[in-house]
Amino acid sequence: MEFSQRHTLVGTAISIVAMLTYLTILVARAVTDGLPLAEVAWQGPMLWCVGLGGALYAVAFAVMRAQHRGQRVSDERTERIDVQAEFAASGITGLAVLAAIVMLALDVDAFWVANTLLIVSWLGSLAGAAVAIDAYRGGLDK
């Protein structure tokens, strides 16, 4: 498996695990403390999950890059896949920003605004990853 395909798969796995961990912590806190979901302290878990997920990805990237030392890791094809994946993600992330602005205009609680931004942007990156993974499996010019 080539480098860019591997780091996409590993990055996607890490991002799904980090997000599920974050959501589990939120729900667990709400249930064990008997609080409504929106009153749970979400700031700490979000920072930890995003920070640890990012750090784990950076380490995994560095290790995989070292294994491919001395090889060309990007070419015209991986560039094109990259652009298509980011394009798919950019559309959904744009929607996340617009949704957050509308929620702020309607004075929605910060909990919901922040989590909408995080989760919809995450879904965007997931859509991008799906496009990339599909393209690596030979579907670029379908």
């Binding site: 700031q43 979000m46 920072l47 990259d82 652009v83 298509q84 994946a85 980011e86 394009f87 993600a89 950019s90 559309g91 992330t93 744009g94 996340a96 920003v97 957050a100 910060a110 605004v113 922040a114 931004l117 995080l118 942007s121």
Partner: peptide, 21 residues
């Protein structure tokens, strides 16, 4: 253009989340 600019919008979203925190 849209793909490359996407990375900048990620920073905007992150800044907004930190402000909300």
């Amino acid at each position: 253009g849209d793909a490359r600019a996407y990375q900048l919008s990620g920073f905007g979203g992150l800044a907004a989340i930190i402000l909300l925190m």
